[in-house]
Simulated scan of single mutants.
Amino acid sequence: MSAGHLAVKDLCWRPGKNQPFLLHPVSFEISAGRVLGVVGPNGAGKSTLLRMIYHYQKPTSGQILVDRQDLWGMASKVAARKVAAVLQEQPGAFGLSVRDIVALGRTPHRSGLSSEGAKDAQIIEAAIARMQLEALVARDFDTLSGGERQRVMVARALAQQPQVLVMDEPTNHLDIRHQLEILSLIRSLGLTIVVSLHDLNMAADVCDAILLLKDGRCQGFGSADDVLSEQLVSDTFSVTAQRQVLSVSQNQHLTFHLPT
């Protein structure tokens, strides 16, 4: 499993020919193994962008390239070997065990109705071990806690052996401990990761680059220091943002107030 270079070129989307654009042309590049945080207010176009990157929603125009290969110029099964996704909500598992769920990650690598082979089993077990799920392999997925489910879905994505991993609000509905576990995981995977986050301080802490969206338009792309400026954040979220330096760590955090 190796990380891939991700390039998005003039990507836009609208639901129909005579409908307004929900995502206006956006372009950016992320080097292999780097983490991109996608942030913005509700309705900014974050999920729309992510759906196109994980090959669920076809762009109206523009390109998504993984190592210079056009993602939407390939079959869905081939694209699934390039990009995996971990989404906010997991569907019901209908009695499937944790191992069953993780094993689904091997589907794009199989031919027809072929069964799991020795190589598949080795990759599945490695993904389970990576996410420390050995004690849960026989458990029904539907009986797990939110944090446990999220770890299983990441293990499934790892079993898929993608070059790019898309994570849509991976800390949503999780308590602080599980949020910290997911953030630590993001840093350690070594994949190219595109992650949407509501918490700007969290995004600044974990991401190598930030893409800031508002009303389907790019407001900024670059380092957190450059993009998450007081003025740009205030304008984008319609709040008054202030940057504070914590004296012990010298880390910078944004605080927010409603404008008066």
Rank of each mutant, 00 (worst) to 15 (best):
F237K: 13
L200G: 05
T255P: 00
V245A: 09
A241C: 12
A80T: 02
L87Y: 00
L246G: 00
S61N: 10
D120V: 11
S184Y: 03
A129L: 10
A3R: 09
A204E: 04
S234P: 11
V239L: 15
V227L: 09
A157Y: 13
S76Q: 14
D168G: 08
A3H: 08
A159P: 02
E181T: 12
E125W: 01
E29Q: 15
R14Y: 06
E169D: 10
D140S: 14
M1F: 12
E181Y: 09
A3D: 08
C218N: 12
I128F: 07
A3W: 06
G16S: 15
R51V: 00
G4C: 05
G62L: 04
G62D: 07
G33F: 11
S114C: 03
R81D: 01
L258H: 11
A127E: 03
S76W: 02
D199G: 07
R187E: 14
S229T: 13
D70H: 11
C12F: 04
M74C: 13
E181H: 14
A224M: 09
R68H: 13
L185E: 04
T192V: 09
H173Y: 14
Q63T: 08
V166C: 07
H173Q: 13
N42E: 05
N18Q: 13
L228Y: 08
G190S: 07
L258E: 09
L136R: 10
G43C: 12
L200R: 04
E125C: 01
G190I: 03
G43K: 12
G43S: 11
Q250D: 13
C218Q: 15
S188D: 14
S249E: 06
T48C: 10
D142L: 07
D168S: 08
F237E: 14
G95L: 09
L183F: 12
L246N: 12
L50G: 10
V239T: 07
L96V: 00
M202W: 00
I176H: 02
F221G: 03
T107W: 10
G222K: 10
Q57K: 13
R99N: 01
T48Q: 11
N201M: 08
D70L: 11
L232V: 10
R14W: 06
A138V: 11
P162H: 01
F141P: 00
S47C: 06
G37F: 02
I64E: 04
G45K: 09
M1Y: 08
S111M: 03
T236K: 04
I123V: 15
R110D: 02
T255N: 06
G220S: 07
A135I: 00
P108Y: 09
L185W: 12
L65I: 07
R130Q: 15
E89Q: 15
D226Y: 06
V98P: 01
P259H: 04
A80N: 04
N42L: 04
S223L: 13
N251T: 08
I193V: 15
